[in-house]
Nucleic acid binder design. Structure first.
Lengths: 189, 189, 189, 189
DNA sequence: GATGAATGAGCGTTCATTCAT
DNA sequence: TATGAATGAACGCTCATTCAT
């Protein structure tokens, strides 16, 4: 009822969001704890009560970003339809909210050198990979895809295409639609 | 025979290479002029004699990296063969020299906020895009690809896949092979 | 009784004084934040906690110096006596505390190129000018000065003489006494 | 006849003038050897062939500036007329060419901490002082000044007023005219 | 939980100067 | 005489972090 003095959890969430926005705007290398604190309206040293180190905050942002991403990509129907919906949604999301994907890519890169960060993002990607793999496997039974489609590898291809497309957000939708076409052609079930 | 005292141009090149390696190892955000200078064996202030600012050095690295990339991707034969060779080469390169692609991706991301850097990388990408587009256009005449392949968009898809795949170098070759299969079907000319 | 741990305001004042002394000793061009910090006994980076930039510190010194100067020059009595007291006091001050006037001159010069600094010093000088002008105007009514003395210009002459005299502190008192003689003639009220 | 390749002396003079202009524009603290060299069209390291150290160049500028000043202040006639002409000329010069006086003041200040510089400027000032003193002494014989004028001190007062006035060039002429009035009143011989 | 003062390592950059060519 | 490469000390400033209050 009284949300004037936010509890610890809300403050933490606010910090994560502020940090997320900073990363989207200035990149991971441009992230400044002081500015994050300012954006939330607290002193910059107070931030360490919620996140002992900068890295902890960044990891939390990684979790937040992957969650955002995942939440936005549900799908139902046949495997063909699921894939189509997935790629369409992602294409639109990249165009409409490039921030999320920029942050995700920023973290992908940093994760190459930071195992802790990698862990924070891997969980999400494992889910994505698994979900896509099962879509491809399901579709394979009904010959929904062209010959030569390996479920695991095709899932990786989709993920790679999405990541790469997110670096050029203007063309992302078209690129993913092209991939969709290639995978399902003009003949969805 | 006396290359003990390197001329200005060689020093510059050595600095670019050292910076490139630093970026590959520590990321753009971990690039330190002092370490670059140490690697080359000169005082860190001397760098500014060759590159007035850090940014100038990074731009030079961008040029170097894109050149590396481009020179490593020639191809001959039919459109089908060209594409196959291209994707195979890239897949192998990502696996064997992940550095190059990491640096390229690092710069891609930074270029979102630095127009000067963007310019250094755009020239290369325009060439890549044009080359791929013409391969797809040529192949279209002889129906080398599945239906629905738009040369321009397909080129972008390939680029996106390569970029995305380079973030997970272990699977890059398989991913690009999958894309190759998808595009060439079971029937290369 | 516990002034071991100085509060923020005291630290700031101590920094200003230390900077003032540095400028007096080495000139504005010889002012080093690290030495100021050392003199106060803190890390040099802590200075920026109190004064965001070096310029801010210098402006604070400008304020401090002008205040020092102004508080040291009160006067009472007839216009003639006021002027005499003023010039005598200044002559003595320049001789006894040349530091203050050196710093003031240093800042005068820098103010030619730094509007912010100019502002910090102008306020003081306006007060000085106004005070002197009114002394001269008051004296004019009782014919305390030789013919041809314009209150505003005479005030400027006094200021100019003081400034110029402060560059050669050994003779300052005599110089200002000469000016006093010239203005008051042999007949002080 | 061939002034394409300037001899050492001309080059030196050009450097002094360029340095002088730099000091006038940016202050002594803003003097950069590289920019001086650029202004003259030579490499910045070549400057050391003409002036071993920066200080040497500054001393040369001090000489140049004092010479400029002195050249511009001749006077003839009775002591009264001489003084009047002198103060008028100086007042006009400060207004029309404030650069010279700014540089002179800049050097005055620096000379407080640099004996070598002091020496370069003292010679000139001694001449100025002597010349003024003799004007005052000559005038004393014919009672050209008010009572109480000591030739030596009055000379110092004039010098101090000129220096101080040069810090506020807009009012310099009026200030020095006021001093002139005070010294000679409405009754020049 | 929050603050402000302080820290210290380190950054990119500057600049007079040196030296081999 | 002139150059360009190199030096090295020093500079102002940044920023994550610590700690007493």
């Amino acid at each position: 009822m009284a949300d004037e003095r936010p509890g610890g959890a809300e403050r933490k969430a606010a910090l994560v969001i502020a940090a997320y926005e900073q990363i989207a705007a200035k990149g991971l290398g441009g992230l400044r704890l002081r500015e994050v604190a300012n954006a939330v309206g607290i002193d910059h040293s107070t931030i360490h009560h919620h996140f002992p180190t900068k890295r902890d905050l960044v990891c939390a942002v990684a979790g937040h970003a992957t969650r955002q991403f995942w939440t936005a990509t549900p799908a139902t129907g046949t495997p063909r339809e699921k894939l189509h919906a997935h790629l369409t949604t992602l294409g639109r999301m990249i165009a409409e909210h490039p921030d999320l994907h920029v942050v995700l890519r920023e973290i992908d890169l940093a994760a190459l050198r930071d195992p802790e960060l990698a862990e924070a993002i891997t969980a999400n990607e494992r889910g994505w990979q698994a979900s896509l793999t099962s879509v491809f496997a399901d579709g394979a039974a009904e010959r929904a895809w062209p010959d030569g489609v390996d479920p695991v590898i095709a899932a990786r291809l989709v993920i790679a295409s999405v990541k790469g497309a997110s670096l050029g957000s203007e063309h992302a939708a078209a690129v993913l639609a092209q991939l969709d076409t290639l995978l399902g052609g003009g003949s969805p079930t």
